[in-house]
Each structure stands twice: as structure tokens, then as C-alpha cells.
Design a protein around this nucleic acid. Structure first.
Lengths: 210, 210
DNA sequence: GGTGTGCGTTCACTATAGGAAACCTGTTTC
DNA sequence: GAAACAGGTTTCCTATAGTGAACGCACACC
């Protein structure tokens, strides 16, 4: 098993899968936007080039608009697609979730090179994955290949000292308190260089963005 | 000026703005995904319930799929809509950016209650905003109102001890090494309770998700 | 070189989305 | 209170999206 798949697996477990069956009441949403702006069907018709009747039918879920129609909508109303589809999420989100992890109480995920401790893993559907890692690797050769995954990663050294190898840059020496932000689809790998194994805190973005 | 606007301003400065104009070649994109997965039209047909012929026409831009068809597509291929529309972003992103911040070298943003140090602020267009904060506040009354902002926040106590006040929960005592993840549109506020002012590392999501 | 098989495109037909105008409300105006 | 009006729904037609079957093409296999 490669370093990449190890890490990937850990991330997948941590992020939780998206059930998400698309309830998607497009009509309601459109009406909502229209009324919020105090627009009549005629107004929207002018803006989008779609007939008044068509708009009425879309709002009442009597037809399923063509994709070109949807484009006219988002163009004419000057909104973006996610906005047209995502009022439920905003609503669902307003109740404040939270997930506490006491020191050392995260979920352990050991690999040959890293010992990950996943934080806040009670919570599914989150946009970031935080984890604390003890860097066991002592040389770059211990990695069979680059670690890489979609998205972005932020990393701060909590203890010890590391070398950060990246695909496109010279290795970088980071000491306790130093931090770095990078595109994590660029290959990367950490190696401890201090006497004790270094400890770093990482936060990755998830694919939840949508 | 309230605590809320202080924080908001800081976040806005740190995140950078998105232009984004929507070119949109749906057919090409679908074919791309299909071939990337080594699927035949028949495979996709099975997965989505759409006829082979229909899929062919969509790929060749001979028809504009109905919205229900698009839903079947994203459902059957297990992708989400943005993914179907946004190959350009992925491509543009593949060049690995990075942004190093040495200990104490972040951008300072003092407020009456917090002293923020923005990390990785060279980089615009990022999906997370990391910052280190010294919590000066010593009582909840020092906040004129709840701090709140869209998105999610991860927080780890680096030094000292804090009370985390949140809108919907009892105050929570966090010590060095403890961490918490929460919806940041829920009102929240930190107060130091240790002898010295506590230091926390926070990471917020940005609105870049779309 | 026939013939079978798999994959994409095209054809002919049916189902449905989009548009123009008629049709319903309430509301306002004189 | 009739008439004019404004905003939304329904009707009816036509343009087009969606389907199954037929077709074309390449690459096997013998």
C-alpha cells in the first residue's frame, strides 16, 4: 500500500460520505429568489428571455427546465448555480453543530511514515479535515511515492522540526510555530529532523465544497 | 465597531475575491468524465437511466439536456454539479502554490478582545484562512455581540486555557491541545482563563466554495 | 474473407419543454 | 359597479429532448 492511498483512505473516512439525494425543489427556490427581489414573472421574463408562462410552470414544478433555460436563469438573475440549488443547505446549516476533541482523544490512524490522529471526527459533512500527525519518517526514501490529494492544506509545526519535501520546490525546513499553506495536489511529504519525532497540525479542505 | 465587523473585515482581506465567468462546455466535460472512468456510453446509460443515444447527443452538444437529465447524470456518476461544470478550475489549480509563514511573522490584526495574526496571507483565492490568536478578553461582557461569520471553523488551543462561549451551548473549557470544530455562523466568543493570555490556532472556511 | 461482437452515431417516433395568447383572479380608477 | 389593469395560471401549438431500433465501423476470432 502506498503512502498516497493510506492518506486518501484516512481522509475518506474522516470526511464522511455524502448521502445527499438531491431533494432539490428548484421551483420553490426560483420563486423564493424572485419574490425576495420583488420581481414579477414579467420582470424575470424580460431579464432571462424566457416566457412568462414557462417561468410559471417551472415555479410550480410542472416542467423540468432545459439546461439552456437554467443558464438563462442564472445569467438573467445574476446568480450562480449553487445559489439556485442551495437554500436547503444554508437553512440546514444554521443550527450550530460542534465537535470537541480533547488532547490525545482523536481517532488514531497509523501508517509506516505518519501517525495521524483525526480530530473532530464525530462530525460528517464538514468542509475541512483537521488532524494532528506524528512524523515518523526520517528520510524521504521511506515514501514510495508523493502524497497528494485534491484541495488545499494548511500545516503548522507544533513540536520538533521537519523537512517539507514538495514536488515543485526545494525541501523546506520548518520549526515549531512555523506554518505553511499549499495546494495539496502538489506531491508532498514530511520528514522529522529533530531529535524526537516532530508533531504537526494539518487541516485539509474536503470535496464538500459545492 | 463591533467584534463581528472586525473579524469579518479581517477575513475578507485574507480571502481575496473571485472573478469567475462560466465558460461551460457541458458535453465535453461529460465525455471527459466518462473516458476518465473508462466507461462506455452503455455503462453510463445503465448508471443514469438515460438512453445511450441521449448521452451521445449530449456529449456532441446536439441537445441541451433537461434538468432532470442532469440530475440523473450527477446521481448516476456520483459526482456533484460543480464537478460537472468546472474542469477549468481544476486545471488552473494544479500548479502547486505555497505560502510559508515563519513563527510570529504573520500579519497582525489587533482588536480590543483578540490579537489576530493572519498566517499565509500572501496567497489569495484560498479555501481556508488560518490565523493564530492571542485571546485578550477576560470576560464575556467585553464582547458587544456574538462573533459570527458564514462557514465553519476549526480551533486548537496552543497555550493557556480558554472558555468558549457559543450561542447554543453551555460555555466549554478548553485546555492546551484540545480542539473543536463548529459552524461559525453560530455566535461564538473566546475568553482567556489561564494566568497568561491563551493562544489558539484557528482555521476558517472561506466563501470560495462554489 | 466471412462473421461475430462492442461501441458510437443516426433515424424515426413519442414525450415533453417553451412560447403566444387566452383566461382567471384581485385591485385600482373614475 | 363597470372598466382598466396587473400579476399569475391554463390552454394550445411547435419545437425539441428523450428513446429504441437500425446503422456503420472497427477489431477481434476462426
Amino acid at each position: 500500500m502506498t503512502a498516497t492511498t493510506d492518506q486518501d483512505a484516512a481522509l475518506r473516512i474522516a470526511s464522511g460520505r455524502k448521502p445527499f439525494v438531491e431533494p432539490l425543489r428548484l421551483g420553490d427556490r426560483l420563486r423564493e429568489i424572485r419574490l425576495a427581489n420583488q420581481w414579477t414573472l414579467e420582470d424575470v421574463s424580460q431579464r432571462t428571455g424566457l416566457a412568462r408562462s414557462t417561468l410559471s410552470k417551472i415555479e410550480n414544478d410542472q416542467i423540468s427546465p432545459t439546461f439552456t433555460a437554467v443558464q438563462k436563469l442564472i445569467g438573467g438573475l445574476d446568480i450562480d448555480l449553487p445559489q439556485l440549488l442551495s437554500p436547503p443547505r444554508q437553512k440546514a446549516r444554521t443550527m450550530g453543530r460542534r465537535d470537541l476533541t480533547r488532547r490525545g482523544q482523536g481517532q488514531q490512524h497509523p501508517t509506516p511514515t505518519y501517525e495521524h490522529e483525526l480530530l473532530s471526527c464525530e462530525l460528517a459533512q464538514k468542509r475541512m479535515i483537521p488532524f494532528k500527525t506524528i512524523v515518523r519518517a526520517r528520510s524521504f526514501e521511506e515514501f514510495s511515492e508523493w502524497v497528494r490529494h485534491d484541495g488545499e492544506e494548511f500545516l503548522m509545526v507544533l513540536d520538533g522540526e521537519i523537512l517539507l519535501y514538495t514536488e515543485f520546490y526545494e525541501p523546506l525546513r520548518l520549526e515549531s510555530g512555523d506554518s505553511i499553506y499549499f495546494d495539496s495536489d502538489m506531491g508532498h511529504a514530511l520528514v522529522s529532523v529533530s531529535h524526537e519525532d516532530a508533531v504537526v497540525l494539518s487541516v485539509c479542505t474536503t470535496a464538500e465544497n459545492a
